[in-house]
Design a protein around this nucleic acid. Sequence first.
DNA 1: TGACATTAGTTCTAGTTAGAATTAATATAG
DNA 2: CTATATTAATTCTAACTAGAACTAATGTCA
Lengths: 151, 151
Amino acid sequence: MPSTLFLPLIRELVSSFQAFEMYSAVHIRTLELTPPQFDIIATLGNTTGMTPKLLGERTLITKGTLTGVVDRLEHKGLVRRIASPSDGRSQIVQLSATGQSLFERIFPAHIKHLEVAFANLPEADLIETTNKLRALRIALSETAEAQRNLT
Amino acid sequence: MPSTLFLPLIRELVSSFQAFEMYSAVHIRTLELTPPQFDIIATLGNTTGMTPKLLGERTLITKGTLTGVVDRLEHKGLVRRIASPSDGRSQIVQLSATGQSLFERIFPAHIKHLEVAFANLPEADLIETTNKLRALRIALSETAEAQRNLT
DNA sequence: TGACATTAGTTCTAGTTAGAATTAATATAG
DNA sequence: CTATATTAATTCTAACTAGAACTAATGTCA
């Protein structure tokens, strides 16, 4: 009879993720952005831009979704799309001057907002939890991979 | 200078959650359900039904969203809504006979599917990670609560 | 009991989501 | 060099999402 200890873990994974999203989103909304829009701005900050493909990998946003999020940011004047010089299929998405100054203003503010919530957790616990979650993520993706390869 | 150890933790929290969702959703989709629909069916299983309010609290689905999800399940004939005998504002959502037999068929199958992915993780780690995530969730919701009360 | 606040659920809106189909460009194999 | 496969991005669809505004019913308190 296999252990059912993974069920409470799943519950806590889902609800702690949701608590984080909620905590983060409340602040992001005061900045007139949605969470995915903020992620894009934050990922493009301090870079010279990147392809939508890479941007999607970094932010965990799938490509079909990304097109729409970038559309709205472009419409707000925060990012621009330029053609890739090396590949006719690719683009480079980069912050506009407005987007850059928005990034400089809100990114440190958001980090500070997050920091407050984590301030009372022991550092050793942060590290250990990070390591345990990494192991969990790897177990999940390797199991998924193995099942795909059964075909 | 405050620690920045919480940043990698956030990254792993988000990506391990996403890995779980992906792993779970691939299986749920083969059952002709969406993940929120499966959550509703699973939550109603082995009960005599409950109000949308409670159902939303259990599944972490907000009430505006829940209306639509229950609508679609009702349309599929898997659940029904009946009026609450004690409160004219309330309803009871419960599994139909079809929904009940679907639950009996797919719920154990889904648990088995999940179990495989967790099988190689040490039990002690499962428990410890659960406890650490609980502490994180509590820290997040208490910090959020404290900030709301500032007005 | 009557004014008022609260609660349950629906509706509405703007946005996100994943997956599948599509288009255009590039890479590869014979 | 050309047929074929792959890749990047967009478009399309069905569904989910949170929050806000709304309606109807219930609770509270003076």
